[in-house]
Design a protein around this nucleic acid. Structure first.
Lengths: 188, 188
DNA sequence: CCGAACATTAACTGATCGGTGCACCTTGTG
DNA sequence: CACAAGGTGCACCGATCAGTTAATGTTCGG
């Protein structure tokens, strides 16, 4: 399998797992949907778990890249960028096929804290937190670590609820909450 | 099966599903762990889905009762009770066997918005939101609906992150965030 | 044109999935 | 004692699970 074929597989697996869940999607169905033979899958990945870990790595890269770029496109000032996180999220929530956060779902199916899939999900959240902390620092927050962690809490809550209740309403609620919290850390 | 036996089954199913996930726990294993024959299960529940819905109903009742009582025990004044929500959550996060929110996990495995299990999970969140809104109203918030929704966002974010990162740290972060938001709605 | 290298399809493994059927057993009631 | 209700254990159903194997292309350098 060429490198590009491998990418197609991981991309297809990502799509299938995101839409259907990890346990619910079997390897046969996965091969069919990704248009790759089952044999080829097991040439590159020894187990289903390894394939899942590869899709999570791809998703982590995709999501953080998208978020950072979208935030930069929406605002210039770091303080405005902190709030723009929630504008970007709002856009995501309204996309067709939005079904929550891949990593929350992964940690919901692989529950043990020492499960490799759980560990990978935790790492994704840590990377996001450090991005938020960076933004908070550049915005001049007195305690950027604290503000970064608080942004993360609101972001995760928003994603979970957007998948369960009204996405547009939740996006607005989270944005308002974030505005309050940011203002408390960065008084004019 | 007597009524009490049925309760034992649902209780056992709740425990098993919470610790292992819905797809990952099969009916054979479930019967074994709940010490109930498989035949008996299918006497009372036509499908696995019906059993899951019954466990979610029990969990909804259990959790909201626990939260309301714990909050009332921790604080008298409605305003303090709003903050006490996050003290109660912090206690929960540190319990042995804490593995996140049952309903977030359910909606992570049953992804479609019209899936009965997804619908039941959404309803649980709506009931919690109305409890938070009630508290906000009694605390004298100008816009209790808004504050209730914001509390819910922070609460869901806290639960998700407590399952992925350090539970004690997340509890503290969420509490601090809540304090800021509550103060913005209820200035002294 | 030959043959090594790699990809594919598809059948297959044993285990488990959700769900059913049946023979047996215990229990309370008349 | 008789009998019905409701329980158990177990074998079984077809389907699917993760993963393997073999037979059959397809592609390429020489």
């Amino acid at each position: 399998m060429s490198a590009s074929k491998r990418d197609e597989l991981v991309q297809g697996a990502l799509k299938a797992f995101y839409a259907g869940g990890f346990h619910a999607i079997g390897m046969d169905r996965l091969a069919k949907e990704a248009r790759v033979s089952k044999t080829a899958i097991y040439k590159h990945f020894r187990t289903k778990e390894e394939l899942i870990l590869a899709t999570l790595r791809l998703r982590d890269e995709q999501f953080r890249n998208w978020l950072i770029r979208r935030v930069e496109a929406l605002a210039d000032d770091p303080r405005d960028q902190l709030l723009a996180i929630f504008d970007a999220l709002g856009e995501w929530f309204l996309e067709d096929g939005f079904k929550g956060c891949m990593f929350i779902k992964a940690s919901s199916e692989y529950l043990d804290r020492d499960d490799p899939i759980h560990v990978a999900s935790a790492e994704h959240k840590r990377l996001l937190r450090s991005y938020f902390t960076d933004l908070a620092r550049r915005a001049g927050a007195q305690d950027p670590e604290e503000l970064g962690k608080q942004i993360l809490v609101m972001k995760e809550g928003a994603i979970v609820l957007a998948h369960l209740l009204d996405p547009a309403e939740i996006a607005a609620d989270a944005r308002t909450t974030a505005r309050i919290v940011i203002s408390a850390h960065l008084p004019h």
